[in-house]
Nucleic acid binder design. Structure first.
Length: 934
RNA sequence: GCCCGGAUGGCGGAAUUGGUAGACGCGCCAGACUCAAAAUCUGGUAUCUUCACGGAUGUGCAGGUUCGAUUCCUGUUCCGGGCACCA
């Protein structure tokens, strides 16, 4: 029987479905069961264009591992779902008038169809969609936990806000100030409800605060930072302005240290950990207070307190609260102009244009805390209010930016590095011995830092301080297609829906707070979310004295994706995010597979949510993803045609240099290798219909280029077409055969033929010359056994290290060797079917049943190798002269060194190899090689 | 600028701990089968040199350590990714 993948794959799919082979069960607590293994893919955002061949790489890699682990006896949780809230769907809705709920549903259906045919062993009963109210009620629930929590810095732990209230009530906040002033219990008790709520807001993990957004009047919407380029909108180039809005944030900065330190416990790539470390950006330094002429002190943060005697001026951010006070009348006009300039600049602009030095003198001076020297105070855009204290002491001799600034504005520079400072550029290394630095003179940086901080503290000028680059995460979006906040403002004070119980109708206060249906997605008044337009939804009640209004912002994409791995454990639970039993059983994700583009966003937020839920007692673990595997990108291989200038004639690649041509992308799907299907080309676009070709030997040869796989390059290859032509098993294996999972590599449809041939050869081993399924019951030979056991050993080793490309190479070798031996013995082939099953599950399932086995090959134990079949009696040793291999010799494996030496030195070629020189040494590494040193 | 990763035949890649560089596949060449093609099968295929046996060179480049280096060290070039006036 010929290998007919369509029939085989249809039958296997049906079998899996009818027998619910992929259903995963949570065992009863305490039951004696298999060990668990949780293997997770980063769930996709279902875009309108479907999957291309680059998307499934990670899914196939994790699927192979999941199937392997099942065959090794694990209870494997391997689910899939959809990150279904998000901007593109809303943008599409704005442009086409289609409701995001509908387009999202359609896109998901398409994705599922594509995923289904590739044969992933997902338990679709556990599917989650972040836009499903049954799902997002728990996203809202977690938000409420975060709102109802604060961070206890002493215990380094998230605690319920009620416990903070009890502390305030009993003793005030002494010892628990965080960023707030100290108050005593009497003061707290004297506060009004509004004052108390405002005070607590400064402690909550999920809190609200004023913050700026980019508002674009012409587009009628709020824009993200990267949608604003050079002060205008990316789409359409419309003017944008900053608007101050009250927004929700997560106090992720409280977790900075733990997020940093716990990286050491994770099996992630060093690159990935490093990216997170950089993002968190811990730096140690000191806060130092500089008094000013007007007696309003400025606090600066510095990582180099050792260079304090080199401080020649201060720079504060344009947004610094003291700017107005410090500006003298003479400088007022210049400062106003500069502030106007910085207002027009996005933070991205301010941080990216490194070469341009701008700034403005306030007219005031600060007083150097040690020398008493007057230091001019400047404002400049390179100092950001959001980092440190928004003020720096500028040390031009030791900092490049400060140096450029001082040079640009002709500010005199104090040299504190002796000859190491040349005057033309700053000396930033820490190995200098300080000069001209009072009590620090003669010390190196690392010594001086300690001495300086000590002295600063002694004189009450400041204190050591650790600063993080990480900022609190914005949780508000002025958008429609996201989770509504379960928050209601009673007389402008934010309350959770639960807190208002008894004051409003029950339905209004229930989770989920449903996203209402809208017809229009345009922004609400003053840059508010589209939800603000729906008065009947927003205005949930009024009793004459109190007004109740819903929060109209929605949550960003990362809200739903920060905890989805928990929901898969118990996806239909209506009483909790997942039952405690389910969470205790499945625990951390053992293997998480996804792209590096989520290095900081998603992975950092998910880690923070996990830590908060752990602190609050909902989880028994504080890191979500134990091992992380990053799949590389699949690049596209573009094809070009060369149009002769001002004609409709196209010249083949090899002849194009004789003409003046314009290279044009041509759809890779109408090119076979490099040969263009000229008829398909003519049919592809009306303006190509009359195209003429200058060919080479009758063929039109295209040019080729490796580029990103994208629609605009016409190099997108759809997996559906590949599966239709070669079958899913071949597709799965070819994706893996291309190279290591982590590496980026170009897609080349041509190469798939090799894998397709291999699959057909594997299949043919099970059929006799008449095409009848036939396996022999004969005893296997030692050669056959050796092939089998060598293969099993290699497969097990390579699967464990995710080297699937070499697994497939090994199976190709195996099939070639068994084919040469015409081996059709059941004892050899049956274990091979089980062994290939993770890679080619459809074919394996079919063969498994043809061999008369009951049940699915999915649970067939993965074969084990037996060393006894791999023992060799002899070994072909390479003989090298001075490290260069010259010859080979076959020797008994257990030969002694003396025997070997006698044998080798007696070889007739010895004289020639030594070339007249004496034998200095003979190196023999047992089982490896022989080296003759002359 | 800083941090991380990488560079091996015409192409994708292999070599797991310092021990026969180029496994496996694509492509290409030759042959078998065929009226022919497709499919399939067999053999060859790093480079230079030699009629051949063989010899020399060879893992981005320049050095070093070692009996022996794709692998370790130093420097350097190029490519990819991330971060970026972060005080």
């Amino acid at each position: 029987m010929e290998y007919n993948f369509k029939e085989i794959e249809g039958r296997s799919s049906l079998y899996w479905e009818n027998h619910e082979v992929y259903a995963v069960h949570n065992p009863q607590p305490g039951a004696d069961t298999k060990p668990k293994c949780y293997i997770l893919d980063m769930f996709p955002y279902p875009s309108g264009s479907g999957l291309h061949v680059g998307h499934p790489v990670g899914y196939i890699a994790s699927d192979i591992y999941a199937r392997y682990k099942r065959q090794r006896g694990y209870n494997v949780l391997h689910p899939m779902g959809f990150d279904a809230f998000g901007l593109p769907a809303e943008q599409y809705a704005l442009e086409h008038g289609l409701h995001p709920a509908n387009t999202t549903k359609q896109n998901i259906a398409r994705y599922k169809e594509q995923l289904y045919q590739i044969g992933f062993c997902y338990d679709w009963n556990r599917e989650v969609r972040t836009s499903d109210p049954q799902y997002y009620q728990w996203t809202q629930w977690i938000f409420l936990q975060l709102f109802n929590s604060w961070y206890d810095r002493k215990q380094d732990k998230t605690r319920p806000i009620a416990e903070l209230e009890a502390i305030l009530e009993a003793q005030g906040n002494a010892g628990y100030e965080n960023e707030m002033p100290t108050i005593d219990a009497a003061t707290w008790r004297s506060y009004s409800e509004k004052e108390k709520r405002a005070f607590l807001m400064e402690y909550r993990i999920a809190f609200s605060a004023y913050s700026e957004v980019w508002w674009c009047e012409a587009l009628g919407t709020v824009l993200a930072n990267d949608e604003v380029i050079n002060g205008v909108s990316e789409r359409g180039g419309h003017p944008v302005e900053k608007k101050k809005l009250k927004q929700w944030f997560l106090r992720i900065t409280e977790y900075a240290n733990r997020l940093l330190n716990d990286l050491d416990t994770l099996e992630w790539s060093d690159a990935m950990k490093e990216m997170q470390r950089n993002w968190i950006g811990k730096s140690k330094g000191a806060l130092v207070t500089f008094n000013t002429e007007i007696n309003k002190p400025i606090e600066v943060f510095t990582t180099r307190p050792d260079t304090i005697f080199g401080a020649d001026f201060l720079v504060i951010a344009p947004e610094h609260p003291l700017v107005a006070d410090l500006t003298t009348a003479a400088q007022q006009e210049a400062i106003d102009a500069y502030l106007k300039y910085t207002k027009s600049r996005s933070e991205r602009d301010r941080l990216s244009q490194v070469k341009v030095v701008t700034g403005c003198f306030t007219g005031s001076y600060a007083i150097h805390p040690f020398t008493g020297a007057p230091l001019p105070i400047w404002i400049a855009e390179y100092v950001l209010m959001g980092y440190g204290t928004g003020a720096i002491m500028a040390v031009p001799a030791g900092d490049e930016r400060d140096h450029a600034f001082a040079t640009h504005f002709n500010i005199p520079i104090t040299n504190i590095f002796g000859e190491l400072y040349t005057g033309s550029e700053a000396y930033t290394q820490k190995n200098a011995i300080l000069t001209n630095s009072s009590f620090l003179t003669g010390l190196t940086a690392n010594e001086a830092i300690l001495v300086a901080i000590d002295e600063i503290e002694k004189r009450g000028l400041g204190s050591p301080k650790t600063q993080f680059r990480l900022r609190n995460a914005g949780l508000s979006r002025q958008r429609y297609w996201g989770e509504p906040f379960p928050i209601i403002y009673k007389n402008d004070i934010a309350y959770t829906v639960y807190e208002l119980e008894g004051q409003l109708d029950k339905e209004v206060l229930q989770l989920p707070v449903q996203l209402p249906y809208v017809e229009r997605y345009a922004a609400g008044p003053g840059g508010a979310s589209p939800l603000a337009n729906i008065r009947e939804w927003v205005e949930v009640g009024s009793n004459g004295t109190d007004t109740y209004l819903r929060e109209t912002d929605t949550m960003p994409g990362y809200a739903g994706s920060s905890w989805y791995f928990l929901r898969y454990m118990d996806p239909h639970n209506n009483n909790a995010i997942a039952s405690a039993d389910a969470i205790n059983y499945w625990q951390q994700v053992d293997l998480y597979v996804g792209g590096t583009e989520h290095a900081v966003g998603h992975l950092l937020y998910a880690r923070m949510w996990t830590k908060a839920l752990y602190d609050l007692g909902y989880l028994p673990f504080h890191e979500p993803f134990k091992k992380l595997l990053n799949q590389g990108m699949i690049q596209g291989s573009s094809r070009y045609v060369y149009r002769v200038k001002n004609t409709n004639t196209y010249v083949s690649f090899g002849l194009k240099d004789s003409y003046e041509t314009t290279p044009l992308h041509v759809d890779v799907n109408i090119v076979n290798g490099l040969i263009l299907d000229t008829n398909a080309f003519k049919a592809s676009r009306p303006d190509y219909a009359n195209a003429e070709f200058i060919t080479e030997d009758g063929e039109y040869i295209c040019g080729a280029e490796i580029e990103k796989m994208s629609k605009s390059m016409y190099n997108v290859v759809n997996p559906d077409a590949i599966v239709a032509r070669y079958g899913a098993d071949t597709f799965r294996m070819y994706e893996m055969f291309l190279g290591p999972v982590e590496a980026s590599k170009p897609w080349d449809t041509n190469g798939i033929e090799g894998v397709f041939r291999f699959v057909k050869k594997f299949w043919r081993l099970f059929f006799n010359e008449e095409g009848i399924f036939y396996l022999s019951a004969d005893q296997p030979t030692s050669d056959e056994l050796k092939i089998l056991h060598k293969t099993i050993k290699k497969l097990r080793e390579d699967i464990e290290r995710f080297a699937y490309n070499t697994c497939i190479s090994q199976m190709m070798i195996t099939v070639n060797e068994l084919g040469a031996l015409r081996c059709n013995k059941r004892t050899i082939l049956e274990p091979l079917v089980a062994a290939i099953s993770p890679f080619a599950p459809f074919m394996a399932e079919e063969l498994w049943h043809l061999m008369g086995n009951e049940g699915s090959v999915t649970f067939a134990p993965y074969p084990e190798h037996d060393e006894q079949y791999l023992v060799e009696s002899t070994k072909r040793y390479p003989i090298a002269i001075n490290g260069k291999t010259k010859s080979e010799i076959e020797l008994a494996i257990d030969i002694s060194e003396d025997e070997l030496k006698a044998m080798v030195t007696a070889l007739p070629q010895m004289e020639q190899w030594l070339g007249g020189k004496a034998l200095k040494k003979l190196i023999f590494v047992k089982g490896k090689m022989i080296n003759i040193v002359a």
